[in-house]
Amino acid sequence: MKRDTLVWTLLMVVGAAALFGRAVFTTDGMGREYVEAVPVGADGQQIQFQASTYGAFLAAQAADPNQTDIQFSLPRSIGLWIAALFTLAILSFLYGDNPFYRIAEAIVVGVSAAYWMAVGFWTVIVPNLLAKIAPGMIQGWAMPGLTGPEADQNLWYVVPMILGVMLLWRLAPTGAWISRWPLAFIIGTTAGLRMIAFLHGDFLAQIRNSIVPLVVLTQEGFDLSASLTNLIAVVGVLCCLAYFFFSFEHKGMVGHAAQAGIWILMITFGAAFGYTVMGRIALVAIRLEFLLDDWLWLIDPIGRRVA
């Protein structure tokens, strides 16, 4: 047996045995979801199942053993186990490429693309395009709450609809030039939006933010610390810009300034690295919390399983 196969087999057998033991032989078990039936609507005819906890279930059972308001949810429990297995499937890539990871990866791609499409359709195409062109029809179909001036027809919206159809023409095997029109619109508006925003918000504003007094005077007199900080801020920006400036050879004064600019940029990148590490750890922490808390019930930091 190959070493990898042995490791995989061992991990699976030990993992399955541990899960079986945890689920069957411990008092509370693990990996179960509970829901609370809540009546909604004006007459309370509809029932909505909202997330509840094992702790709330225990408390409700203690008060009334026959209660059905809070109950075990099989579909959500299955979902929880699937979510845990998906998490493990992705993490398994850390050991090496394998079919479980590949399947999970394929599902991410498919689900994400479809999710975005559905969101785009129901939150933008229906209310912002179709409801503008044919408000009556959309009101009678999916948006009965659309009333008042918001329900006024605006036929100018036919233009983005035509551009949208032309954009989708890109999927057709012939007539690729048709999609260039909407693409040109997207590129043009992006350029128009960004040109001003970057010029105003970044270029001009950052120059303005750099114009600070080099000698800071307060009511107590000369403030050495603030003056030094401002000096670093102004000279530092100039030095970094000198490094980015390639029209002159980096020699003499320009060379010294560029060298100082590199040092400041290195400190900047070091800070960015530190912050990036911090961010990534938090992302892995939430997944391990999910496995330990929601699925395995090994920890209960917010008391969801306390009656």
Partner: peptide
């Protein structure tokens, strides 16, 4: 024109 539930802003 509406909130997330489809209620007109007005």
């Amino acid at each position: 024109t509406t909130d997330a539930r489809g209620t007109a802003i007005g």
